[in-house]
Simulated scan of single mutants.
Amino acid sequence: MSSTEQPGPRTAVPFEVPPADRSRTAAEERLRSVSLPGLTLAVRTRPAAREGLPPALYVHGLGGSSQNWSALMRELAGTVDGEAVDLPGFGHSPPPDDGDYSVSGHARAVIRHLDASARGPVHLFGNSLGGTVATRVAAVRPDLVRTLTLVSPALPELRPQRSVISNALLAMPGGAALVSRMTRKWTAERRTREVLTLCYGDPASVSREEFEAAVAEYERRLALPYFWDAFARSARGLVNAYTVGGQHGLWRQAERVLAPTLLVYGGRDRLIAFRMARRASAAFRDSRLLALPDAGHVAMMEYPAAVAGAFRDLLGATDTGRG
């Protein structure tokens, strides 16, 4: 399958996408604060279907939050004991004390949380930037990862999507201030519609209730004094990670991952080209691919049942779901 034709460059906006089926998940989820030296993380949990299920951790993408995993967490509640983390500066997590928003900085935050909670090894999930972070965690700390599931991971492309090029403006010095000025008259409703168009294969599939919840969340995030800084520095950290070569290069680290890996790519993804599925399948030594022709950048939100089914197949094939 070939990737779909992409639209022209768009004005850069953060990728906060609406929580899926929030009306059914909000009452079932709990958000707690985890304090670590120099770092405070908000962690979203939902009750597991039964005791003794293997642990899982979900890591969101650039500009997103733990809410992006709510639909998949619900689908997998009978399979894993899952929790989703808000990366530093996103969701309900405050900025890190050291201001480190690099890929390695976010990976260290995940590792520190796993070490402190003693939940590892976990079934580790990541989307977009979270997929990059999860790849690095799996490469440098294989003892913490049972399986790896990557939804549209943000790994380096020689020919990036045009939408990504326009959003790279935020990673440049002064870029966040420029984008803020360019979009200062935008309402939260418009910002949300722009994000839906960018991230969803079918933006019309989002219900009015979900849209309104996303607008409210956007308004909350825009009021935070560190909103643009956290996004811009994380975007810059991702761009910088793309330029690193040698053993610390992201594709080299993908080759070092030992955990069985599920790769999920969408045919309508405007941020990560579907053609990257082939390269990723070759890089991760023990991998399988779920291709969703109609999905965009957040397949775990658009097609949670399909992603959950593929994950269960991974467990069945690798026999890692017993502990």
Rank of each mutant, 00 (worst) to 15 (best):
M1W: 04
M1S: 08
Q6D: 03
P9H: 02
R10P: 02
T11W: 01
A12L: 00
A12F: 00
A12Y: 01
V13C: 00
P14N: 09
F15K: 01
D21G: 03
A26Y: 03
E29N: 11
V34N: 08
S35F: 07
P37T: 08
L41S: 04
A42N: 12
A42M: 05
V43C: 07
E51W: 03
G52L: 06
G52S: 06
P54S: 11
P55Q: 13
L57S: 07
L57M: 15
V59P: 02
L62T: 12
G64A: 15
S65P: 00
Q67G: 06
M73G: 15
M73L: 15
E75G: 02
A77Q: 12
T79V: 14
V80A: 10
V80F: 14
V85F: 02
L87K: 09
P94L: 09
Y101A: 14
S102N: 08
I111L: 06
L114T: 10
S117W: 04
S117H: 04
A118K: 09
R119M: 05
R119I: 02
H123E: 10
H123R: 10
F125A: 09
L129P: 00
L129W: 04
L129R: 03
V133M: 05
A134E: 05
T135Q: 14
A138G: 07
V145D: 06
R146V: 13
L148E: 07
L150S: 10
V151K: 05
R159Y: 01
Q161F: 00
Q161P: 03
S163T: 15
N167D: 07
A168H: 06
L170Q: 01
L170H: 02
M172K: 05
M172R: 09
G175Y: 06
L178Q: 07
V179T: 15
S180D: 12
T183H: 01
R184I: 01
K185A: 14
T187C: 03
T192N: 08
T192Q: 14
E194S: 08
Y200M: 15
P203D: 14
A204W: 03
S205Y: 03
A214I: 05
A216E: 14
E217R: 10
A223R: 13
L224A: 14
L224K: 14
L224M: 13
Y226N: 06
Y226S: 12
F231N: 08
A232C: 08
A241L: 11
A241M: 11
T243M: 15
G245M: 02
G249W: 06
R252V: 04
R252F: 01
E255A: 15
Y265Q: 11
G267Y: 12
R270L: 15
A277L: 08
A282T: 10
A282G: 12
R285S: 14
D286L: 11
S287H: 06
R288G: 10
L290K: 13
A291I: 00
A291S: 07
A295N: 02
G296K: 08
M300P: 02
M301T: 06
E302Y: 10
Y303S: 12
D313I: 04
G316M: 05
G316P: 00
D319I: 10
G323E: 13
